[in-house]
Design a protein around this nucleic acid. Structure first.
Lengths: 342, 342
DNA sequence: AAACATAATGGAACCGGTTCCACTTTTATG
DNA sequence: CATAAAAGTGGAACCGGTTCCATTATGTTT
């Protein structure tokens, strides 16, 4: 366990002042003679010197770290988002501090405190919906906050990147209606979330356009965590007049819903047509391959990182930006015409 | 955009010295009168003061950050590992810097440089297998390095946490042999990886125990990224004497292999019995539900974090620790007796 | 009440970089 | 060749905390 050389060690070994070494470290911050630069670089190499980030950040905290605050990385949607965000950030020389909230206000608040103490330059988050004051404070401090996937209506000043949830749910529902379904159900996220609300709104729009009757019994909300999706599914199956088609618009609950269907022995698409919000590779491997709504995760990531770094890069546009990217409906084989009732 | 208060602002507002404020910030570092403590706390609250981590770390870099260096978080195995590591770290008040290598030496080297500059207290990584000197240097610096899932034999001094790969592949292969299969294939990770080698070793052991002939044509390695698994599958199907059973021991290639099987119209388990290393929920939703080797990701995460923090917590045991956890073979319906050749 | 231990506080150095500014040495210009 | 401008370098303050040590206030002991 050797102790690390500092900039002064390098300066001494190279026979120059620390100011010169610093200039070598930060090209463009001042002139250094070619010969001197080479000598200093050599010394740094032989000494195995690495400038310490903590010390550098002390002076004028540079935008070198982003906070990524997600509900949960075991959810494939968030996992892929994290993957893309990290890659995008790395390509710009930015590091990512990953934190999870488990959808818990209290944990979110603690994570945010940590991010404040670290003085990160930006935060990309899927907010739980509370902790309003903390979010505001973050912005006051000059941190670039970007909400991704969801937003908080009470905080209109925050940049947001989401998929077009209304349109996604609308087109999925419309596809089912076009196949002749009249009893179409939806399992969505909690109504407290913008995501949940928007998707249900899109669903309603589609029903209206198709001239179908709306039945609130066919609309089910399920929490983003736990097995609530399975219970919602069971409730739908037990209805006096059960649905012939279903949109699973809560990504986190897709597997729970499908598991329940499998256990109940419901055959897809003969007894129930299904469209899910989820584009993992396995949806294609199911029997039958599932019709899905593919979320352009790479775009979400790219825009999020860009916005989270915008103020840092000087582009301090006054108004908050809202980016809405389109999801893609991919038809496979889990949708068919409804069976005629006997 | 207000500028943040510093410890001196707090001290001035509370009418005390910075030393006192620091003591309030770090309980146990010195005596502070009850009344003073309360006053300082109040001032901090009204000023919205948050101590800056970068400054704190300058003095004696405390073990407050861990580096997590994975190949790729879009792989569900790594995603869940990341999730567990983050939760485990948070429960100890430690933050996680997430980085990905895409299995690329060069990128790995860059990421490691960043981690060196940040002076993280520990690193949990799935190494590519190169960059030996950097890993050594990291250890010299006193960083706790833990390899998870894989290891580098040339670096025997590093702590390692893996599943028992030999035994996992052995038991999976043995199960197939017990069902009467004589032509059992395996698709594993690259032979350059310890994971790939060990699993193939376990496979060979099982064949030997069962008194089965070994055929190197039935052993296929596929890279951890890309679609190599699909090609390996095709090659196996095109064999003059194709296998009747298959172990997919490369988690990253499971979906590619299954996709190829689906496209080729191979029915499971009638024409081919299959066991996969992968325990995502969807494996149960397939038709038929897949027999899997479940990797105890939570244990991997827990042990990794613990080891990565061990030196920091004073437990500087001399010898490197190797933790080997057992995977669990879960029998479902993708394994059957081989069809009699006609 | 004297003597001494202990609690509470403040001053100042320090951590490892960055940066301003002054000073010396080259190089360019008239 | 004198002189101005530019290049190269070093000294020292500074960023925002922590910590050592000296000093003063309070409390205990005989």
């Amino acid at each position: 366990m050797q102790k690390q050389p500092t900039i002064r060690d390098v300066a001494a070994a190279a026979g120059v002042s620390v100011a010169v070494v610093s200039r070598v470290l930060n090209p463009g911050s001042g002139p250094v003679a070619e010969a001197t630069r080479n000598r200093v670089n050599e010394v740094m190499a032989t000494l195995g010197y690495h400038p310490r980030t903590a010390a550098r950040e002390l002076k004028h905290g540079p935008p070198t770290t982003l906070g990524l605050l997600l509900a949960d990385v075991s959810n494939p949607f968030f996992a892929r988002l994290a993957d893309q965000v990290v890659q995008e950030a790395h390509s710009r020389g930015i590091q990512v501090l990953l934190m999870t909230t488990q959808e818990d206000d209290q944990l979110e608040s603690e994570r945010l405190s940590t991010l404040i103490e670290r003085r990160v330059s930006g935060i990309i988050a899927t907010p739980t919906g509370n902790n309003l004051e903390i979010w505001k404070k973050l912005q006051d401090m000059g941190t670039d906050v970007v909400f991704v996937d969801r937003s908080i209506p009470a905080l209109p000043a925050v940049d947001v990147v989401t998929i077009n949830n209304i349109e996604s749910a609308r087109s999925a529902t419309a596809l089912l209606a076009a196949h002749g379904h009249r009893r179409i159900a939806i399992i969505s996220g909690p109504a407290t979330s913008t995501t949940g609300r928007d998707r249900i709104a899109g669903y309603r729009e589609a029903l209206e356009s198709a001239g179908l009757e709306q039945d609130d019994l066919l609309i089910r909300s399920a929490a983003f965590r736990g097995a609530a999706g399975g219970d919602a599914m069971t409730a739908l199956l037990n209805l006096a007049d059960p649905p012939t088609a279903l949109v699973v618009a809560n990504t986190a609950q897709v597997t729970a819903v499908l598991r329940r269907l499998a256990h109940a022995g419901v055959s897809i698409p003969d007894e129930l047509s299904v469209i899910v919000f989820e584009d993992s590779p396995w949806t294609e491997l199911m029997t039958p391959p599932l019709t899905i709504v593919r979320q352009p995760i790479d775009l979400l990531a790219r825009h999020s990182v860009q916005l989270a770094l915008s103020r840092a890069s000087g582009k301090s546009s006054g108004k908050p930006t809202v980016v809405r990217v389109d999801a893609e409906l991919i038809e496979r084989s889990s949708v068919a015409r409804p069976r005629v009732r006997t």
